[in-house]
Simulated assay, not measured.
Amino acid sequence: MTKTDQAAIEANADDRLISHGGNAKSGYEDRLRTIVERLRGAGDIPGATVAQQIALANELSGFELGRFLLEHRGLNADWTHRLVTYQAGATAPAAMTALESRIFDTLPAVLATRERFGIFRRTLQALLAPGMVLASVPCGVMGELLLLDYTGLEDIELVGVDLDQAALDHAAALADERGLSVRVSLHRKDAWSLGVHRGFDVLTSNGLNIYEPDDGRVVALYRSFFDALKPDGKLVTSFLTPPPTLSPESPWDMAQIDREVLALQHLLFVRIIEAQWSAFRTHAQTDSQLREAGFVDIEFIDDRARMFPTVVARKPL
């Protein structure tokens, strides 16, 4: 990639962020007004009157995470990191509103995301070996790599790639906090255009394919990862599975999900926020896409509810 190409990417990078960039131009207040007008026009739904839906939207505007979701319809690196590293009881109850506490402590999607983060860390820890180069794309705050234990593995290199400069800045701060700055390099690039060939032993990726509805684009993303991995390298990634209301092939284990809280989640993320992380795929679809990109030895590791599985795939020798 030439310097001119890199400059072009950085010039419009914020508008190309599919998770939370380019979605709002005038703040959460205008977005909230638009949401309220839409809810009034749509009418009551089973289990929630218009008045109840509007009250919930207004309640979201009462805390920082709610305002971010209202404005951006997705999560940035900082909020994702806060959600996955949150520990129940670590924040004084008075510091959170009731709705904020329910989001952090009870929503099935949040719990699955937090469990997925733990699965990533355990999986990656087990893959570590001397002299490795590990990459995170998009890296976000890069917690899945920076929070690992590198005792006795001082020669491992860590690479973070993200289009969001704020994410790279947060990753740099966490690397410094963890005493890992000397082995970390950060790059502002598009995940589909890494410009790396056989450079990484392990590549980890979370949170990008769930915002991309185009299956062809997802296969292209996996091909980008495939090319960036060394032969016998491992990809550790994840995907969102469809709920039973959207697909008869949904793998969700409803015995693990509180239906009342699931209804609240649907109101918040689907009805009110219209969240952009809605690109659902089954295990079979993900397996097919990874194989189309060239990967083999595909292994799935499910969270308890089977909502946000982890998948490990290998690039052949």
Rank of each mutant, 00 (worst) to 15 (best):
D176H: 06
V219R: 04
F104G: 00
L32Y: 00
R271H: 04
V161A: 15
P244Y: 11
A126P: 06
L145I: 07
F225M: 05
G118N: 10
D164W: 02
A129H: 03
V184P: 06
G118D: 08
G118A: 01
R16N: 11
D14G: 02
L221Y: 12
K315G: 15
E71S: 11
S288T: 15
Q265T: 09
D303G: 10
F63A: 03
D232K: 15
A175D: 05
G179P: 07
L203T: 00
R16T: 02
R271P: 03
I156W: 01
A126I: 13
D287S: 07
T49W: 09
T282D: 01
A57F: 00
A284P: 14
D253H: 12
E157D: 11
G195E: 13
S185K: 10
N58R: 11
D190F: 13
P251G: 02
V159N: 14
A7G: 03
D302W: 09
G62D: 08
G66Y: 04
P309I: 13
P138N: 09
L124F: 09
T49N: 07
L262A: 10
Y222F: 14
A228H: 03
L235C: 03
P93V: 05
L107F: 11
T113Q: 10
E29Y: 09
P242I: 08
H266S: 08
K234D: 10
E154F: 04
G143F: 03
G233S: 12
A167V: 12
L107Y: 00
N76K: 06
L153E: 10
V182Y: 09
D176F: 11
F226Y: 15
Q276W: 10
T4V: 04
V110C: 07
L134G: 04
A77H: 07
L168T: 13
R102I: 09
E274M: 14
R271Q: 13
V110Q: 09
Q125C: 07
V110P: 05
E154G: 01
S19N: 13
Q265R: 05
R16A: 11
F295L: 05
R188A: 05
A88C: 02
T151A: 15
R304I: 07
F120H: 02
L240E: 02
L39R: 00
L221W: 10
A275G: 06
K230G: 11
A112I: 12
F104E: 03
S19K: 05
V296M: 11
F104D: 01
G140R: 01
A135M: 07
V202K: 02
W252S: 11
A77K: 06
E10W: 14
A95Q: 14
L186K: 02
D232C: 05
G66A: 08
P316C: 08
G43R: 03
G47V: 01
E274S: 10
L107R: 04
L148K: 05
A11E: 12
S278H: 15
E59Q: 12
L208W: 03
Q52T: 09
E292K: 08
Y150L: 13
R304A: 04
S19V: 10
E274I: 15
T113Y: 09
W252A: 08
S181Q: 13
I54D: 04
K189C: 13
T85Q: 00
